[in-house]
Amino acid sequence: MKIASSTGSSPKTVNIHDAKTHLSQLILEASQGNSFIIAKAGKPMVRVVSIDQEPRPRTGMLVGVYTVPDDIDSPFQGEIEAMFGA
């Protein structure tokens, strides 16, 4: 299997042909936390990671830190209406 050399904590890169040939082994490695990149003609196309490694959504991370008033658009209501011809 042709694998690009990796330095540090960079994931290994595998070309598409080798990824198809060794898919079972690569999936096993990814499920154990060793993500990898599939490349086409040397250009990285996709990163394969374990489901456990997927980034978690950041929605709501500042809940309670800031409050948005119900009338947030009121101070600029005239300007907004002028911009949109309302």
Score class of each variant (00 low, 15 high):
residue 73 D to P: 04
residue 34 N to R: 08
residue 38 I to N: 07
residue 63 V to G: 11
residue 20 K to F: 14
residue 59 T to C: 05
residue 3 I to P: 15
residue 2 K to W: 15
residue 3 I to Y: 10
residue 68 V to W: 03
residue 77 Q to D: 08
residue 19 A to V: 12
residue 11 P to R: 03
residue 4 A to G: 05
residue 20 K to L: 15
residue 39 A to T: 03
residue 55 P to H: 07
residue 26 L to G: 05
residue 72 I to K: 10
residue 84 F to P: 02
residue 30 A to I: 10
residue 17 H to E: 08
residue 10 S to I: 11
residue 60 G to F: 00
residue 69 P to C: 05
residue 12 K to N: 09
residue 14 V to R: 03
residue 47 R to Q: 11
residue 17 H to Y: 15
residue 35 S to F: 08
residue 32 Q to N: 15
residue 26 L to E: 04
residue 25 Q to C: 02
residue 51 I to Q: 10
residue 15 N to V: 04
residue 83 M to F: 04
residue 55 P to T: 07
residue 35 S to W: 07
residue 8 G to E: 14
residue 83 M to Q: 11
residue 84 F to N: 01
residue 82 A to D: 11
residue 42 G to S: 00
residue 72 I to L: 09
residue 35 S to C: 09
residue 78 G to L: 08
residue 54 E to G: 02
residue 11 P to L: 03
residue 58 R to W: 03
residue 2 K to V: 12
residue 79 E to R: 15
residue 16 I to R: 12
residue 15 N to M: 04
residue 51 I to W: 02
residue 63 V to M: 10
residue 62 L to I: 12
residue 42 G to V: 00
residue 75 P to S: 00
residue 9 S to Y: 12
residue 27 I to M: 14
residue 69 P to Y: 04
residue 3 I to A: 15
residue 84 F to I: 00
residue 28 L to Y: 04
residue 50 S to R: 12
residue 46 V to M: 02
residue 6 S to A: 13
residue 6 S to Q: 15
residue 83 M to I: 14
residue 82 A to L: 12
residue 61 M to Q: 13
residue 12 K to T: 06
residue 61 M to P: 01
residue 1 M to L: 14
residue 6 S to L: 12
residue 5 S to D: 12
residue 51 I to F: 05
residue 54 E to Y: 05
residue 50 S to G: 13
residue 19 A to I: 12
residue 9 S to G: 12
residue 29 E to H: 13
residue 30 A to H: 11
residue 76 F to S: 05
residue 45 M to F: 11
residue 58 R to F: 02
residue 9 S to A: 15
residue 35 S to K: 12
residue 46 V to C: 02
residue 50 S to N: 13
residue 4 A to T: 13
residue 53 Q to L: 01
residue 9 S to I: 14
residue 77 Q to V: 07
residue 4 A to R: 06
residue 3 I to L: 15
residue 32 Q to W: 07
residue 51 I to S: 07
residue 5 S to H: 10
residue 77 Q to C: 08
residue 37 I to V: 07
residue 41 A to H: 02
residue 52 D to V: 01
residue 21 T to R: 04
residue 1 M to H: 11
residue 71 D to P: 00
residue 62 L to Q: 12
residue 9 S to M: 10
residue 66 Y to H: 14
residue 32 Q to A: 10
residue 23 L to F: 06
